[in-house]
Design a protein around this nucleic acid. Structure first.
Lengths: 162, 162
DNA sequence: ACAATATATTTAATATATTAACTATTTATA
DNA sequence: TATAAATAGTTAATATATTAAATATATTGT
């Protein structure tokens, strides 16, 4: 369904490139709402699941990740990580320890509870997301990824020339 | 650039459908950040610009839109509209009046200032967004829109069967 | 060795977005 | 006509995300 139909707009969007951009943003919103609904049953939010996955799959060995590293991987502001980790620490999903090798850093690691929750969620999530995306075949998924890459590359290029 | 390169992940994403979904969400994030940078120079935020455009192009005649209508068109919660309109009213971009025909409703309309700001921003925005999306030709933009539609259609279908 | 610069994290204020509960008004039903 | 149900908007609490400023620590330059 076209965007203007979905959102019950009175007029269609009159500029193709604006429609494309709004399609990306709107689809992302729909994905996030759906994911939030999914994760809610496990007591997680979208972003918390993302953190758990990063801690499991993106930390070298078992050493955990710094907040700055999480900020970079999630493309969010460092100030945001503080409050996010505060809430996850409170929920006992992660632990935060000062890094003895560099006193500026904290190291964030999965707790046992965090691992257990992830062990429960992850297989269900993987299955579900494959089912959801099966509306596109593999070729289409690759096409989508490539088109979105081009947009991001164009944005990055212009931002670098600023 | 692939997602894991862009975000400096230590490992690539190991599930195609997850990569596709993260690509949409991440591209949306990049688009929003870039747009926020653009609108900041006009004293607007992304969402405020969206509201101004809806008020200009989506209200029948000059009567304005209700908050519920804005909520629907923006796919956000009504509670959110209250604070958003509060801020925009304070900035004199919109005015809020009670609807005499139905005392439950407010009507939101553009002020002169709101129109003036939009008159200044819109042509620049249109030009800029076409330039940004010129990394894709028209055919590719249509392809992108269609692929994203399929994803949303799939999501909607499953949500309806819940 | 010391000063300047850079970096990690936190705090405070602001913006966006959600849910739940509430009030006022309108619509639907008996 | 009266009651029940639905709807618009608001308030409060919570989550996500930003900028700016501050503090502590590490790195770089002289």
């Amino acid at each position: 369904m076209r965007i203007h139909e979905e959102l019950h707009l009175n007029q269609p969007i009159d500029l193709l490139s604006r429609e494309a951009v709004l399609s990306v943003v709107h689809t992302s919103t729909c994905i996030k709402k759906e994911a939030a609904f999914f994760f809610n049953r496990f007591g997680l939010t979208n972003v918390q699941f993302n953190v758990l996955m990063l801690l499991r799959y993106q930390s070298n060995s078992k050493e955990g990740l710094s907040q700055a590293r999480l900020s970079e991987m999630m493309l969010v502001n460092g100030a945001n990580i503080t409050t996010l980790i505060d809430r996850m620490e409170k929920a006992q999903l992660v632990k935060r320890t000062a890094d003895p090798a560099d006193r500026r850093y904290n190291i964030i690691q999965l707790t046992k509870k965090g691992k257990d929750v992830l062990d429960k969620v992850e297989p269900v999530y993987r299955n579900e997301i494959q089912r959801r995306l099966s509306v596109l075949n593999e070729q289409q998924q690759h096409t989508l990824i490539e088109l979105l890459e081009r947009i991001r590359d164009g944005i990055r290029e212009r931002a670098e020339n600023r």
